[in-house]
Each structure stands twice: as structure tokens, then as C-alpha cells.
Design a binder for these strands. Structure first.
Lengths: 225, 225
DNA sequence: GTGAATTAGTGTACTATTGACACAATTTAC
DNA sequence: GTAAATTGTGTCAATAGTACACTAATTCAC
């Protein structure tokens, strides 16, 4: 096939799975679709990627406009998740969607074009397209990343207590962890350090605040032999 | 933006990183570009994805036509790698490339449109586009997969010796492994089983042949706590 | 058929990591 | 000062990882 002849590119869309902690639950940012198809259903924020901008640039603009979140400044980190495509995915024709996953903390969306809401990942409403699968995949990916990177950074304030860290791990992984083992293990990884500050809240002993050593995503190496 | 108005999709391309073992080295299948841009340079097999076919379908057709390899029947497994895009990636304009990675064994390419060759991943020629980075990324991904999946399956015959398996691991990871520890570890994973057959070759003791329990990709779970 | 060459196949001792498990310390509210 | 709440801590057993060297089985040359 020759590009100049009769080549017609598939529709290219981008979608974002934006996570944050709310209480002790992992939540995902959704928007209510105002138009067909799937009018009235909840969906991941996303839209078209046009010629001339990268998928990440397109996503930034779309997310900013539609749900009022600035990926650059309001998320701890963003990474590409997967590219989904099926001829039937979008009723309007063949679509390819490049999806990204990001984690943030206490995100305050600015004015947005669309109705938005945070939903607990364990209590999702009916979702448009295959977005339920995409969210499940994003959560799996994030859970895997937690075991060998400092990705939890994205879900926490710059300074956090070990209990907050553990709560985030439990929310993403969907199971409880042992407090002593979690602390022992995590501290031995060397990803975080103590700060002089304490977290005081409620009628109980205050907690030491920790911070990640590295503000960008850091991976530990795994070994085989 | 409205789809029906002035939306114009970026060029969508697909590229394949196809690995196989040759001797004790990991090799990647490359084609020599016959046209500009990068005419004469080596590149990953790939091409345009047009409306109406999924990226995987497009890739299958392209790889079959250009380098004579049938992804379905000639590769042990194929998975999506990453989607690369930069405005400058393709000199003709903004392009988005969905890349896939696959592993095969003693692949015999059929008649192909383009000049092709297998290159050792540690002795790559000058490559077109950012294909060098893509290959490095694919290798990293494969190395990571080897530590928690049966992905090595793709690189081996259905029946193989433990030495062959170890050689494949060493080639992908780029370092040597201890024979006794490798065997102990791998056998304990429970991914493979002994067969009654022996591999006889050369003036030395014959080796037991093993087979994977599962013909599709299988992942072991990692734990945190 | 004997010895040289080559690769397959095996075990042990040590260290590090994981996982199960319970109670004292510190703070606030009353 | 006592109750309520949450932080913070250690040990032991089991498992997994790591370093390391020799014997077994075969072919080939003589």
C-alpha cells in the first residue's frame, strides 16, 4: 500500500485511566457521556487524537478541557498503558485507542465541559465501550508496578505515613497486608526516607512522615539466577 | 472536536520485533528499506494500518507480505509492545506506530518482497527511525517476562533440553547463569515437564528433553507481603 | 577398546528473604 | 486518669537464593 494513494487511517483516540485514593479506596475519574454512542453511560475521559499532536499531547488537552485535570501538574506520574483496537469498539467504525494510566492525589478538577465523578474501583457503574476492561487492566498493571517500583508515589502526598502507604497498597492490590512485614520490607527497599515531621490527626499517637527519595518513577531490578 | 468536521487522523503504522535464537545468540528479523526515507538502512518489518483492520491484522498481512513470516503459525507467541509516537518520527509527518514483539524458533521466511536478514541483537547495524530503541525496549520486556512467565516457550522447539533453555535465557538477559541454580529454580517453577525423549547430538552425553506444560503464555504471580 | 574430548547432570552449606504472629507506646477526649 | 485509637516494634521458622566442583554418558581418534 502506498501512503499517497488511497490510504485512510483508522480513527485514533486516546483515553486516560486516572487513579487517586479517596478514603481508603482507590478511585477512578469518569465522565458521563453527553452524546451517542453510550449516551448517559460513564466512561473514561478521552477523545480524538488529530494529526500533528502526539497521543500524549492530545490526551493532555482533552483531559484538561473535558474533566479539568492537568496531567502535567496534577498527577504524580502518567504512563502509557496499552493500545486497544477492535473494529467494533466504536460503533462509528474502526477505532484505535491509545490508553494512558496516571496516579494523583487529592485532585481538584477545574471547570470541566462534562459531568465528572470519582468512582471506587470496586463499585464501578455500567461503563461505555470496553472501559471496564481497561480499568481492570490498569489496576493490574499498577498493582504489578507497586511490587517493583516507587509508583505509589503518585497516589500519596509528598510526605506520607507508612500507614497511608500501606492503605494505598491494599487498595490497589485488593487485599490486606501485614503491618510489620510491610514496613520491614518497604523500608529495606530503600525507596523512601524519614522526614523530621510528624502527622498529627485524631486522638492517637502521631506518625512519622516519610518521603520518596526520587520524584520520578524508579524501578528495582529483579533477578533470576 | 467533532469527528465529522475537520478531523484528520495521524498516520497509523505497525511494526514487529521478531526474535529467534540462532546459535547461542538472540537475533532479530530486519528488512532493508527499498525506499526513502532511510533508504538502504535496516528496519523492523512494518507498514501502514488502514481503516477496517485491527493493528494485529494489519501487522500479520504486512509481515507475511514483506518478510514472508506468518505470525499465526510461525511464532510461538506475539504480544503488543508499546505505541510510539512523535511528530518527527516519520519524516512524512506525524505518525503513530503500534509495535508488537514476537518470538519464534528456526523461522523459515517464505518468499518476501524485501531483502531480509537476521541480526544478532548485540551486533545491530544502523537502523532506520527509532528502531534501535524499540528493539532494546523489546529485549528488556522479554527479559522481564522470562522471570515470571513461560515466554521462553516462544524461542524453543516444543521439546528442548535444559541447556537450550538456559542458553535462551542467557542470550536474552545478556549474562551467564549458574547451571545448577538455573535448573533447580526452573524445575521448581513447575512450568515444564520431562519427556521420555533424549536429545542426541555430538560426541557427548545425550540430554533429556523437556516440554512446557502450557502452550500459551502463562504468568506466575509475584507477591509483596 | 582405551583414552581424550565434550556436554549432561547432580548436592551441600550458607545467606537472605518471606511470612506468621502480639503487645507496648503515644496521643486526645472525656 | 482512664478509655479509645493508632503507631511502632521483634522473633522464629520456613523458604528461596547463591556460591561452588565433580561424576556420568556419549563420540571419536587412535
Amino acid at each position: 500500500m502506498n501512503y499517497r494513494s488511497k490510504y485512510k487511517a483508522p480513527i485514533l483516540t486516546v483515553d486516560a485511566v486516572i487513579f487517586q485514593m479517596s478514603g481508603d479506596q482507590l478511585h477512578v475519574l469518569l465522565t458521563k457521556r453527553a452524546n451517542e454512542p453510550f449516551k448517559g453511560d460513564w466512561a473514561l475521559p478521552g477523545g480524538y487524537c488529530a494529526q500533528g499532536s502526539t497521543t500524549m499531547e492530545a490526551l493532555s488537552q482533552i483531559v484538561k478541557r473535558k474533566v479539568g485535570v492537568d496531567l502535567e501538574s496534577q498527577l504524580g506520574y502518567v504512563e502509557q498503558l496499552y493500545t486497544f483496537d477492535t473494529v467494533a469498539r466504536d460503533p462509528r467504525g474502526h477505532a484505535v485507542s491509545v490508553t494512558y494510566m496516571g496516579c494523583g492525589r487529592a485532585i481538584e478538577p477545574a471547570a470541566a465541559e462534562q459531568e465528572i465523578a470519582w468512582h471506587g474501583v470496586d463499585q464501578l457503574p455500567t461503563l461505555a465501550y470496553d472501559h471496564e476492561k481497561i480499568i481492570a487492566y490498569a489496576r493490574e498493571r499498577l498493582a504489578a508496578k507497586l511490587t517493583y517500583t516507587n509508583a505509589a508515589m503518585g497516589l500519596l502526598d509528598r510526605k506520607f505515613t507508612l500507614s497511608q502507604l500501606q492503605t494505598a497498597y491494599e487498595a490497589v492490590m485488593g487485599r490486606t497486608l501485614d503491618k510489620r512485614n510491610f514496613r520491614k520490607k518497604f523500608l529495606s527497599l530503600g525507596l523512601i526516607h524519614e522526614t523530621p515531621d510528624m502527622w498529627r490527626e485524631g486522638a492517637h499517637r502521631p506518625a512519622k512522615l516519610y518521603a520518596f527519595n526520587n520524584n520520578s518513577l524508579e524501578a528495582l531490578s529483579r533477578s533470576f539466577d
